[in-house]
């Protein structure tokens, strides 16, 4: 299986490094419009660097293209890759609006290639376990769920995150993880209500989903949180309750007594290490699906539905009304 990665930023690094480690997978090239980024990643992974997608596609043979460019460029690159007959792995969110997402799905179908979208939360062991516990009836029928995902504003490091027409904002980019997971765990959504505070320093949203089953979930997402990135999930059912909190599952704390240059007198690095990170599991799964022709755990249709719900939340924020799907 030959794979080319487009986009050598944060997620491009994750993808390329994972592919480079996999047996039976050959990373044939990486590309980025910033030559240094492409060069550096190519060096780390022992592959070739390109500065344009066209140049890469005309130089290398690839079965799969992995799209890890900023969200507003997903559509254009997925469609180009599909038109070239390549299977596509695309980072989430699939696109910034539902029409674009559906067009991407249609083009992939028309070209007979598969499209996978990186809703990686489904591959996080704590979330996979919750899904399993719900399906196994361990907490009965779910009534109320809460989820939270908060961290620093990514726009302080990469400015495109602060442009709503490029990143989609905190709901489309970050909360979409929990939207997808909730839909996976609880089924289809029938109504959406959202509230949001958005300015240059923060993007904070509270969104409530009511499901066909009658269950309700409130999701909290925050860019600009003054603390370390963390996430929680809780599902309460007729026969039990399951909770997960990333701050409470840090199995390793490394503390160093040497003072930092900035005046601190210790350094603390909490971690939750695992032998296989969720991206490894996700990307291996996608490649396995292509190889064996099986349905993925998360389909492109799922990604479209998650985006539809995120768009409904934005509509609710605009109108102040609950939006029925």
């Amino acid at each position: 299986m030959k794979i080319a990665v487009v986009g050598c930023g944060g997620m491009g690094h994750v993808h390329a490094l994972e592919f480079a480690k996999m047996p039976n997978v050959e990373l044939v090239g990486v590309c980025d419009i910033v030559p240094e980024l492409a060069e550096s990643l190519a060096q780390q992974t022992g592959t070739s660097a390109f500065t344009s997608f066209d140049a890469m596609m005309s130089s290398v043979e690839a079965d799969i293209v992995s799209v890890a460019v900023p969200s507003y460029l997903h559509k254009e690159l997925v469609i180009q890759a599909a038109a070239a007959g390549k299977h596509v792995i695309c980072e989430k969110p699939i696109a910034l609006n539902v029409e674009d997402a559906e067009e991407m799905v249609r083009v992939c179908e028309a070209n007979g290639v598969q499209l996978f979208v990186g809703h990686v939360v489904r591959f996080f062991p704590e979330y996979a376990q919750i899904k399993h516990q719900i399906d196994a009836g361990q907490i009965g029928k779910v009534g109320v769920a809460n989820a939270k995902r908060v961290g620093a504003h990514p726009g302080n490091v990469k400015s495109w995150y602060k442009e709503a027409d490029k990143s989609g904002g905190v709901i489309v980019d970050l909360m979409v993880h929990d939207i997808d997971f909730m839909r996976w765990a609880l089924g289809e959504v029938k109504s959406v209500y959202g509230m949001n505070k958005y300015d240059d320093d923060m993007d904070y949203a509270l969104v409530t989903l009511v499901f066909e089953s009658g269950a309700v979930a409130n999701l909290e997402a925050f860019w600009g949180y003054p603390g370390s990135f963390h996430y929680t999930a809780e599902f309460a059912g007729t026969a039990g309750l399951v909770q997960s909190d990333s701050l409470k599952t840090q199995s390793l704390q490394i503390r160093n007594s040497e003072a930092e240059a900035d005046g601190g007198n210790f350094v603390e690095i909490p971690q939750s290490p695992g032998y296989r990170n969720p991206y490894t599991v996700e990307l291996e799964h996608f490649i396995g699906c292509i190889r064996d022709g099986i349905e993925p755990i998360v389909t492109a249709r799922d990604a479209c539905r998650a985006l539809t719900i995120a768009a409904a939340a934005q509509e609710s924020i605009r109108t102040g009304k609950a939006v029925l799907l």
């Binding site: 907490i139 009534g143 109320v144 809460n146 509230m195 505070k197 509270l206 409530t208 409130n218 909290e220 309460a236 059912g237 026969a239 039990g240 309750l241």
Partner: peptide, 15 residues
């Protein structure tokens, strides 16, 4: 200011 409040009697006997 906006707020959301979960008022549920959602704690099972085992909690």
């Amino acid at each position: 200011v906006f707020a959301a409040l979960d008022t549920s009697w959602s704690r099972p006997k085992s909690f």
